[in-house]
């Protein structure tokens, strides 16, 4: 079996909440939000893993912790066997080159004061990807790669459409020749017709460069379209993970089942709706003991309120954290 490209072990990311002075004097315990709460995940070369969950599930935090934009409070992220948040600056810089990110907001992810060419130029120069005299040609090649024409090079982001900005963000990420992309809601802000263009582009790039991807999204249909495997997150934990078709056709965890049932479908006609889940996701400051999903679970039992569910292996590569997986 091949070695995983990225391997996450027991990762926890916590955000401490600042106590007020009076709170501290009154003996309030320091609180912290467990945004990522003990995640294990392997990503293999050329593989796309979809990360789904509602807001507050910790999927974005997990993505950023992989890129060491947040420091983990426990556990580690190994990329090609190397810990992303330790090691000397040179080694980490090299590592960063291999692990790039694409963001949600197409405009905010580009420096408004730099032209497209300047943005890409800087990355190429900084990492000396190509000799200086070849930079203009390389910029043109990268723009072509993401489906932009060379005359876009001198535009500022505000003169581009959302889809074009997202392509520039991709060109910037691709400029340093990464082996893995973390895409955080990369198509969520785009209109459907543009979204389809960018999704196809991602598939092409994945194919051409053998990229591994972590695709973070709340839109389940998009995740199904692009992922090989899917991890479902709830309150900082991966509650179910498996091959795409297992997750979408044979979901085992009641949360995954509810999530899928809640997605509106094009094929159905107008129907009488009965909301599948009541209430909201609990606050990460106050995660219930036992199963995190107990407060909303339609089939909750007594044991769920006291004992954290084990990870049950349903079939090869398919695991769900629930007491009642059959």
């Amino acid at each position: 079996m091949t070695e995983p490209l990225l391997s996450i072990r027991g990762l926890r990311v916590e955000f401490p909440k600042r106590r007020t002075l009076t709170g501290a004097l009154l003996g309030q315990k320091p609180m912290s939000a467990r945004a990522v709460d003990g995640v294990d995940l392997d990503v293999y070369p050329r593989e796309t893993v979809g990360l789904v969950g509602e807001s507050g599930s910790g999927k974005t935090t997990l993505g950023r912790a992989i890129l060491s934009l947040y420091q983990p409070s426990a556990g580690q992220v190994l990329f090609k066997g190397q810990n992303v948040s330790t090691g000397d600056a040179v080694a980490r810089q090299k590592l960063h080159r291999n692990l790039q990110m694409v963001f949600q907001n197409p405009y905010a992810s580009l420096n408004p004061r730099m032209t497209v060419a300047q943005t890409i130029d800087e990355a190429l120069r900084f990492h000396t990807i190509v000799p200086a005299q070849d930079i203009p040609a390389e910029i043109e090649r990268l723009l072509g790669l993401v489906g932009l024409t060379a005359d876009m090079a001198n535009r500022y982001p505000q003169a581009l459409s959302g889809g074009q900005c997202q392509r520039v963000g991709l060109a910037r990420a691709m400029s340093v020749q990464p082996s893995m992309l973390v895409l955080d809601e990369a198509v969520a802000a785009l209109d459907v017709s543009i979204q389809a263009q960018v999704l196809n582009l991602l598939l092409d790039l994945r194919e051409a460069f053998g990229l591994a991807m972590i695709f973070i999204a709340h839109e389940l249909s998009v995740v199904r379209h692009i992922s090989h495997r899917v991890a479902v997150m709830y309150l900082g934990k991966i509650v179910e993970i498996g091959r795409r078709d297992d997750i979408f056709e044979r979901p085992k965890h009641p949360y995954t089942q509810s999530l899928l049932a809640a997605v509106p479908r094009l094929g159905t006609a107008k129907r009488k709706r009965q909301a599948v889940l009541q209430g909201d996701i609990p606050s990460p400051y106050n995660i219930p003991t036992g199963c995190p999903f107990q407060t909303r679970c339609p089939s909750v039992q007594d044991i769920c309120r006291s004992v954290a569910p084990p990870s049950i292996t349903v079939s090869a590569d398919h695991k769900a954290d629930c007491h009642f997986v059959t």
């Binding site: 950023r64 890129l67 934009l69 980490r92 810089q93 960063h96 080159r97 692990l99 790039q100 990110m101 963001f103 949600q104 907001n105 905010a108 992810s109 580009l110 420096n111 408004p112 990355a123 900084f126 990492h127 963000g169 910037r172 340093v176």
Partner: peptide, 10 residues
């Protein structure tokens, strides 16, 4: 995000 992107480029 563009600052995060810059950090992420090392």
């Amino acid at each position: 995000d563009y600052i995060l992107a810059a950090r992420n480029l090392g």
